[in-house]
Amino acid sequence: MHSPNNAFSSIRRRWLTLLGLAPLTQACSPLRLINATVPSHTHTQVRDLPYGSAERQRADVYRPVQTATGAPIAVFFYGGSWSSGSRTDYRFVGEALASRGIVTVVADYRLSPDVRYPVFLEDCARAVRWAGTQANAFGASRDRLFIVGHSAGAYNAAMLALDPRWLGRDPVAGWAGLAGPYDFLPIGIPEVQTAFNWPGTPADSQPLHHAMALAAPKRRALLLAARHDTLVNPQRNTVALAKALRDHGTQVDSALLDRVSHTTLIGALAPPLRGLAPVLDRLSSFLLAPTS
């Protein structure tokens, strides 16, 4: 739910120190610095593909260098309190997964205050359906389609996976949420209040509401969070959602990770920070596992 440029300042300080780049100008954005570490030999990238007609209905696709037919395909949604963010900031995510053999779609979606709930979910659902139709052309399998998100993007992924209004029971192999807010009523953050029309926010806007419903699709899930996340409470959100899903028969792999925060959890996908926590190993193993 965070604002990414502010939240990644700790990442910038850490890896600048490690790499001896502290003298770089402070005007450089943290995410630009993170992306500067991304190698180019691990993937190929196709930019600015439309999945709809709106300006922000665009996606970038990252493909493994060694493309094999039938690879998994993951659609990634970033955080930013549903009011900020850009797919170009998350090249490090696309590279990380593509380097492990996973075709990765990093998608923009329309943001508040230009739109309100549920329009951003409608965009995300459209992006996932589009990725499914393009899977074969990208060297991936439609039957191995996953949804992945961080923070507000993890909320988007959870809602698409759990609420049949968005994707119905279309074949989605599973979904992964990193540091997601899944139960956040009442809303106290001003930009989130705007995005969700608070106080008129319906109870069924919450992923936990759907996880507790017998009608929720039983798509397997991976839920990761920082043990000491101070922005999105991991007990109320990740732990509670994992329990609800298991109680209703969904296969869930979940963990609270040490040595990372709300923001460095996703930052750990970038080359300089992968030693902080096994986020890439956990996520790629989940996406590469055989589907039933």
Rank of each mutant, 00 (worst) to 15 (best):
Y182M: 07
G188N: 13
A195N: 14
R165P: 01
R227F: 01
G188H: 15
A213I: 09
E191Y: 15
G200Y: 12
P217S: 08
P234M: 12
A173P: 09
G177H: 12
A226K: 07
G177S: 09
Y182A: 05
P207A: 10
L231F: 12
R219E: 02
G180H: 06
I187A: 05
I187K: 06
T201G: 10
L222T: 04
N233G: 14
A221D: 01
P199H: 08
A176V: 07
M212P: 02
A225H: 13
N233M: 10
V232S: 10
R165C: 00
S205Q: 13
L231R: 15
Q193C: 12
A226N: 03
P234A: 13
V192A: 11
A216D: 03
L223T: 02
L178S: 01
T201A: 07
N233V: 11
G180A: 05
M212S: 14
G180S: 04
M212Y: 01
G177M: 11
T201P: 12
P164E: 02
L208T: 06
G168E: 05
L222K: 07
L231I: 13
V172C: 01
P217V: 11
V232W: 12
P164T: 05
R220M: 00
D204T: 11
L224S: 05
F184C: 06
P234Y: 13
T230I: 13
L224F: 06
P199V: 08
W198R: 14
A211P: 04
